Simulated assay, not measured.
Amino acid sequence: MTTAQTTLAVVLVLVFLSLGGAKIAAVPFMRQAAAHLGMSPGLYRFVGTLEVAGAVGLVLGLASAPLGVAAAIGLALLMTAAAVVHLRHGDPPVRALPAAVLALTAVAYAGVAVGTG
């Protein structure tokens, strides 16, 4: 395991635990985001659950590289879908940028993990 892999994992875990947890808890700004995108609170909580599960997979991936790679790919796909949802909803591209950056970060983690495995 490299420093790059560990650093990327830590960053992704912190982001997805906080964002996923906020979605699951249905904090006000997340409820507003769900309403803005036309998503039910239940669906938004499900997305949050996927984010938290992906973060847990990244933590476990520090001990088992294939699990970490699978979690990173899942998170990359989830964030790609989030970016598409924002763009299809008519949001300006800057609103899709955080999801796109997280998707690319997850892909970078997977690449580093595969390259060192």
Rank of each mutant, 00 (worst) to 15 (best):
A55S: 00
G48F: 10
V15Y: 06
A76M: 13
V56D: 03
G42R: 07
A100G: 13
A65K: 01
T105F: 05
A33D: 04
A106M: 04
P92K: 13
L60V: 10
A103N: 06
A33P: 00
H89N: 15
L77P: 05
L19S: 02
F46P: 00
V107F: 00
A26I: 02
T105R: 06
L77K: 03
T3G: 13
P98F: 05
A113N: 11
G74F: 06
L8M: 10
G90T: 05
V13S: 01
V47H: 04
I73Y: 05
A83W: 02
T7W: 14
G74W: 03
T2M: 09
A72C: 15
G117P: 13
A26L: 10
A108N: 09
T49M: 01
A35F: 09
P92H: 02
V27F: 01
T105M: 15
V112K: 03
V114G: 08
P28T: 09
G111L: 12
L14Y: 01
L77N: 03
G42W: 02
A34Q: 06
A53F: 05
A103G: 14
T80D: 06
V101L: 13
A99Q: 01
F46H: 08
L37F: 08
L102R: 00
A99W: 11
R31T: 11
V11C: 03
V84R: 11
L97V: 10
G61H: 11
L19N: 09
S40K: 03
V114C: 10
G68K: 05
A9Q: 13
P93M: 07
V11K: 07
A34W: 00
D91V: 06
L19M: 11
T3S: 11
V85K: 13
S40F: 11
G111R: 08
T105D: 11
A113L: 07
A63V: 15
A83I: 12
T3V: 07
T7R: 11
L58N: 10
H86R: 10
L75S: 10
Y109W: 08
L78Y: 05
T3E: 14
S64Q: 08
L58C: 08
L60S: 09
L8T: 00
L102S: 06
P92T: 14
V84G: 04
Y44M: 14
L17W: 15
A22Y: 02
L58P: 12
L104H: 11
R45V: 14
G48V: 06
A65S: 15
V52A: 09
A9E: 12
V101S: 04
V47M: 07
G54Q: 09
R45N: 00
A110N: 14
A82V: 02
A65F: 12
G111N: 12
A63E: 13
G117T: 14
F16Q: 01
L19W: 07
L60D: 00
S64P: 01
L8Y: 14
I73N: 15
P98C: 02
G54K: 03
L75R: 01
